[in-house]
Simulated scan of single mutants.
Amino acid sequence: MKRSTIGLSAIVFATTLISAPAFSQEADKAPTDSLVLYSSHPIEMVDYYISAFEAENPGVKVDLITGGTGELLSRIKAEAGRPLGDVLWGGGAHTGSSAPELFNAYDSPVLSEIFPEFLDPAGFNAPPGAFTMVIVYNKDLVSDEDAPKTWAELADAKWSGKIQYANPASSSSSYAALVAWKEIGGWELVEAMAKNMTIVDSSSGPFTAVGNGEVELGVAYEEGAHRWLASGKVGIVYPSDGVTLLAEGLFRMKDGPNEANADKFADFILSQPQQQALVDNFPGRRPTNVNVSFPDSMPSANDLNVLPYPADAVTDQADWLAKWKDIMINTR
């Protein structure tokens, strides 16, 4: 496996490709021995799946380009006239539909094994995983009985200054929590909760602070919360008043040099064995395949009060974040 990390210079170089003449794609339809994967996920997990994919497809070698989802998407846009990559593994389900000119539609028999909640209405995403937001609490500071069971309970004055939450303007996972709160109780509930919260910039801040005993409660993304379970120091609550479940993104690039292998990789990641491996090897990662056995600590989608993710949470995100900024100012 060859690995590279994208940086500013790579993006600048890629932008020069916009004006480059498009080359013939006919040869790209023939079988190849390569796959170029762009990914923003943790290296440990990506390396695991690259090794497994190469073992199942002898002769195929994967080149990995890492970076933030935004960086990688910028690179793909810059390379649109002459695609160099095959698969983008990162971002959310909406990433593909936000730039449909860059990706191929995905239709595969394996989609019949995927929870309906995670299927992409726009038809681009091969949903490799999903996430939700949870309440995490420190067991030395909060008893299991006293831990909040709903989001709305975080508005109780007894939790003033005892909740840590990452700024949704800098954390996409925290934004998903904000969407859930607005769906449950509107901006009135959001403001009541915000009064009790300490706001941090990093999405890893809340579960880390709770795990270290620095704060009683945190609003955390699911995987991060589960990282602390083995320590015995934290408890996790899936709020009964509702959660949003969001699919992660995996997209096959249009006219990529190795389209057949891109198709194989998408099918491979969604297959039951690899989805089970996700659960077994990476605690807190949520599979999308219905045939996976979930650990006791992670309820399946069927066992949660799943809220619909409103379309205007995507189209009006800038307005929602502006409203959040006003609330922040008013509640500090």
Rank of each mutant, 00 (worst) to 15 (best):
L154F: 06
S271R: 02
G67N: 06
V314N: 09
V215H: 02
V62C: 07
V190R: 02
W324D: 02
A169L: 11
Y165A: 03
D267G: 01
P21R: 15
L72R: 03
R75F: 12
S204I: 08
N261H: 06
E145S: 13
I65M: 15
N330W: 04
S231P: 09
S143Q: 09
T315N: 11
I327Y: 05
F268Q: 08
D86G: 04
E214M: 11
I11E: 12
P308V: 06
M45G: 05
G123Y: 02
L84V: 15
A147M: 05
M197L: 12
L72G: 05
A247P: 00
Y165L: 01
M193L: 14
F265R: 02
L250E: 07
L246P: 00
Q272V: 10
Q272M: 05
G213W: 04
L141A: 10
G90M: 02
N305F: 06
A177W: 03
D316C: 10
T5D: 11
S240Y: 08
L17H: 15
A152T: 15
A147R: 03
W187G: 02
G232F: 06
K77F: 13
M1H: 13
D144I: 08
D319M: 03
A277W: 01
S231N: 13
G211R: 00
A177F: 04
Q164L: 13
F53I: 04
A220F: 02
P128W: 00
E153Y: 07
A180E: 05
P206E: 07
R252G: 14
E26L: 13
E191I: 05
V306T: 12
S4V: 14
W181T: 01
G232R: 07
W320M: 08
A262D: 07
S108T: 11
M133T: 10
A99Q: 12
A30L: 12
S51P: 03
A177H: 04
I269H: 00
S240W: 05
G81V: 08
E101I: 04
G123W: 00
P21W: 12
S108R: 04
S34V: 12
T132Q: 06
I135K: 00
E117G: 12
K325Y: 06
T16Q: 11
P127D: 09
P299C: 11
I269Q: 01
S39H: 04
L64H: 07
V36L: 03
N330G: 13
S108F: 08
G161S: 11
E113I: 03
T5V: 15
G81N: 15
T208A: 13
K233E: 12
Y175M: 09
S19G: 14
G70K: 14
N57W: 03
Q317W: 00
G85W: 00
Q275H: 07
D312S: 13
K162C: 06
N104Q: 14
M1W: 10
T315E: 14
G213E: 09
R332H: 14
G218D: 07
D107V: 11
P257H: 04
E113P: 02
L189A: 07
I135D: 02
N57I: 01
F265P: 00
L141G: 05
A230W: 11
N291C: 05
D280T: 11
Y49D: 05
G129S: 14
K77E: 15
E101G: 13
L307C: 07
T32D: 10
G85A: 15
D241I: 01
L35W: 01
T32V: 12
G59L: 11
I50S: 04
E145N: 13
L84R: 12
V110R: 05
A311C: 10
A277H: 04
V292N: 01
V46E: 03
